[in-house]
Computed example of a mutant assay.
Amino acid sequence: MTDNSAERRREKQPRTGAEQPWEPEDLVISEGKDPTPERLEEARRRLADEGPSAIERSAP
């Protein structure tokens, strides 16, 4: 008999979309902004500094 408790816990975890890789352009667009070079650079910094939480705060 196998223990599927870890699998059941994963199924109950809400998915935010932050589990997947995000590009700076994705972050800028998720905020409803045009991806200008300046915004893309800022998004690169935020993704590097904050990781997945950057997209969790901005994506609806």
Score class of each variant (00 low, 15 high):
3 D>T: 05
57 R>K: 15
11 E>I: 01
58 S>G: 12
33 K>H: 11
23 E>G: 07
57 R>C: 07
43 A>P: 06
33 K>S: 08
5 S>P: 05
57 R>S: 13
26 D>N: 06
20 Q>V: 13
58 S>E: 14
60 P>C: 00
4 N>R: 08
22 W>Y: 09
27 L>H: 11
28 V>E: 08
45 R>N: 00
40 L>C: 02
34 D>F: 03
60 P>W: 09
36 T>L: 05
17 G>Y: 03
45 R>E: 07
58 S>C: 13
55 I>P: 00
48 A>D: 09
55 I>A: 14
36 T>F: 05
58 S>P: 00
55 I>D: 00
11 E>D: 05
20 Q>N: 11
47 L>Y: 06
29 I>Q: 14
59 A>Y: 09
14 P>Y: 04
2 T>M: 09
26 D>Y: 02
39 R>C: 04
10 R>T: 03
11 E>W: 03
27 L>T: 07
32 G>F: 02
56 E>L: 12
55 I>H: 07
1 M>W: 01
42 E>K: 13
35 P>T: 03
16 T>W: 06
25 E>F: 03
58 S>W: 09
7 E>F: 13
16 T>Q: 04
27 L>R: 08
4 N>T: 09
6 A>R: 14
24 P>E: 07
5 S>W: 06
22 W>C: 05
31 E>D: 12
9 R>I: 10
32 G>H: 06
29 I>T: 15
6 A>S: 11
34 D>P: 01
27 L>I: 11
13 Q>E: 13
21 P>E: 14
41 E>F: 06
34 D>L: 07
8 R>F: 14
26 D>P: 00
42 E>W: 05
21 P>F: 10
53 S>V: 14
25 E>L: 05
25 E>K: 15
43 A>S: 07
23 E>I: 05
24 P>S: 04
34 D>Y: 06
33 K>V: 01
8 R>K: 13
53 S>H: 01
42 E>C: 04
3 D>M: 07
47 L>N: 02
56 E>C: 08
4 N>H: 10
26 D>T: 03
16 T>G: 14
55 I>C: 07
39 R>Q: 13
19 E>F: 07
26 D>S: 12
51 G>R: 01
25 E>Q: 14
16 T>Y: 14
